[in-house]
Amino acid sequence: MHSRTSDRADVRAPLRASASDGLKIVVVGGFGVGKTTMVQSVSEIRPLSTEETMTQAGVGIDDASFVQSKTTTTVAFDFGRISLDEQMVLYLFGAPGQERFWFLWDRLFAGTLGAVVLVDTNRLADSWYAIDRLEYHGTPFIVARNNFTEPQHTLEEVRDALDLPSDIPVIDCDARDRDSSKAVLVALARHLYSLSTSSAARETTA
């Protein structure tokens, strides 16, 4: 809308002016399972990457401690974006695969609606850790089997191997395919909705 060619910042697929509410979903799973690929498939912008430096708690109160705080961990992640309506914009984060990132989970992805756990059936054990952390943080999730190659296990076998309760959806997907990846997000949203209605029913209305 402003200068169209001179300033690259102006042409970066801007959101609509009414956008006002950012939402977060994360895609987690083992190393190289297709997280970035899935973000790319569904994003309305070319996926971006950035990083966050996390310092130890209590550091950074004054200038001196800020300078001296060498105990920082840098976490890189990629993300994409989907405009849902006039107000809501969903940001989809591809979490780093390495386990050393996970202790930062709650600070980095606080306020996440839910997670997609991508699994490769040749390496099911790679997703145990992710599931463990999600359960620990109480983050709702679904499991999606990325069919890189001929799956080695049925969805029921995946459910058993991961010891998942029956109410957690386990579905198939092809992370490279937009419709398939979209269906994964729809399944997660449906799961979140059903959790919210059942917990709303449990709460005594004020």
Binding site: R12, R16, A17, S49, T50, E51, E52, T55, R81
Partner: peptide, 18 residues
Amino acid sequence: RRPMAVVEISSYLGMPVS
């Protein structure tokens, strides 16, 4: 000039979110 998320600004500036 149009809304942009903190994380996008971070990516475009090439600077950590913090």
